[in-house]
Amino acid sequence: MKKQITVTVNGEQHTVEVETRTLLVHTIREQLRLTGTHIGCDTSSCGACTVLLDGKSIKSCTVLSIQADGKEISTVEGLAKDGLHPLQEGFKENHGLHCGFCTPGMLMRAVELLEKNPNPTEEEIRWGISGNLCRCTGYNNIVKAIQYAGAKMRGEETPSTEPEFV
């Protein structure tokens, strides 16, 4: 069964026809062609599909498109208006990504994390991103990236991004 929905994605309003069973991630990727949001699993375990739905980070593989009707969605493509968002900058400066596949989901999760807790401890960051899997980085630099972005967003001096080799 098909249904028309209207969603505001990254500030732009779209009206699209979806099947009632279509997952939000498929609508975002295949109808709206915003392919920065990725699919990494089929059990809501990996978080690669994380987007913001009305400002709250959700796994878009576990939400039906019709549930998003009338709501606002933010994806990685809309994160920065111009240049890089402090989180994107933090990931780049701290080598917080390797293959880049988990990165958009990590970023969108971190947006909400920093919004709720602008100055998180390392442990709070680790628990905060524990719904997002990364297979490449070992997480050290993702933690640093989020700390860097937090400092920048608080208007403080950002920590050193030099590798911590002995």
Binding site: V76, K92, E93, L97, G100
Partner: peptide, 23 residues
């Protein structure tokens, strides 16, 4: 040199091009 990665900008902005992105 710990040069920042040249590939990062596209990955960070959702502009990577993975197989499932091809339509």
């Amino acid at each position: 040199h710990s040069m920042k990665r040249k590939e990062d900008d596209r990955f960070l902005q959702g502009k990577g091009n993975y197989v499932d992105d091809i339509q």
